[in-house]
């Protein structure tokens, strides 16, 4: 059973192609992550599913209903949290919540158990205008409002953007609880490290899907030999690695530089020697397992080589 079925979706704004032939199926009860940088088309795709936009090509079914012809049915059962904070700033926390409850023909009491964990954290401030809440609290209120009518499907557009790591972690813990209550969650994020929180993810870049799989599959499909390099002068080492003629791609990653050679078989110590010859000191070189970001980088690097940007 799929809660979202996206088939051959293309969307254009004038001459700009925002989405190009997208196909995604989201299973009932899973957390599906749409991962990609700003401008990749994440918001457009989520708005298409939310029945807010109309595609140029293809079809989308959400909860079994067509997003164009049966949008009213979808709107009844959908929870949606837009990318930027979109509640009434001049209404208090509780007024916002009650408004959204009444609009969906329900009451705060009726579905209180669903939002209890989240809402109880902002309840002490329930008479404060929503515009005067801190970032983390706004986000919790927005999620509470999106959940108040007990939606079957939750669409979250970059809920953690601009939120500090602590609030981000708490937010993902809340999503896991919601998933356990049986709600299907479709969430977009620019943060690669959040991918591991999802059951399945899709990489999106420049309006195209690069890959769809579980986070584990994506990592196990990574078949390059990934080397982490560290030295006293990271910038110099990076520049030196770029001059190697056996280079496939290289990029800094945290405290290390990640390097992939174009040869399948080669000795790591060879690279070490070259770097030493070029005057790098205190070099550390090791073979490592990739993370989600490495996989995304690889997909992007490979495609970027195919077509030069601009």
């Amino acid at each position: 059973m799929y809660d979202i079925e996206i088939k051959n979706i293309s969307k254009q704004y004038g001459d700009v192609i925002a989405l190009n032939n997208i196909n995604i199926q989201v299973r009932k009860g899973e957390i599906f992550g749409l991962i990609g940088p700003d401008g990749a088309g994440k918001t457009t795709l989520i708005r298409l599913i939310a029945t807010l936009l109309v595609q140029n090509k293809g079809e989308i079914k959400a909860l079994g209903y067509d997003t164009i012809s049966q949008f009213q049915e979808i709107r009844n059962k959908l929870g949606y949290m837009p990318g930027r904070f979109s509640l009434y700033q001049d209404l208090s926390v509780i007024e916002n919540l009650e408004l959204f409850a009444s609009i969906f023909g329900t009451t705060v009491e009726e579905n209180y158990n669903l939002i209890k964990d989240i809402y109880s954290q902002i309840e002490p401030f329930k008479n404060r205008p929503a515009g005067k809440l801190s970032g983390g609290m706004k986000q919790k209120l927005a999620l509470s409002c999106a959940l108040i009518h007990k939606p079957e499907l939750l669409l979250l557009d970059e809920p953690t953007t601009g939120v500090d790591p602590v609030s981000r972690k708490e937010f993902w813990e809340m999503l896991s609880k919601l998933k356990n209550m049986g709600i299907t969650i479709f969430v977009s994020t620019p943060y690669m490290d959040e991918a591991s929180r999802c059951d399945r993810i899709a990489f999106i870049q420049a309006g195209e899907i690069l890959d769809i799989a579980t986070p584990d599959e994506i990592i196990s499909n990574f078949d390059d030999k990934l080397i982490a390099v560290k030295s006293d002068n990271k910038y110099k080492t990076l520049q030196d690695l770029k001059t190697l003629n056996t280079l496939r791609y290289v990029y800094p990653s945290g405290e290390y530089i990640h390097y992939v050679d174009s040869r399948k078989e080669y000795s790591i110590s060879g690279i070490m020697e070259i770097l030493e010859q070029k005057g790098n000191t205190n070099i550390e070189l090791k073979l490592i397992e990739p993370n989600i970001e490495d996989c995304f980088m690889k997909e992007m690097m490979v495609r970027a080589n195919e077509r030069i940007i601009h």
Binding site: A50, T51, L52, Q72, R75, N76, L78, Y80, P82, R84, F85, S86, L87, Y88, Q89, F100, I103, F104, G105, C145
Partner: peptide, 13 residues
């Protein structure tokens, strides 16, 4: 402008 219309639109209103 505030984006609240977006939320109203996706509601059954």
């Amino acid at each position: 402008e505030l984006g609240t219309m977006e939320l109203m639109l996706v509601s059954p209103m």
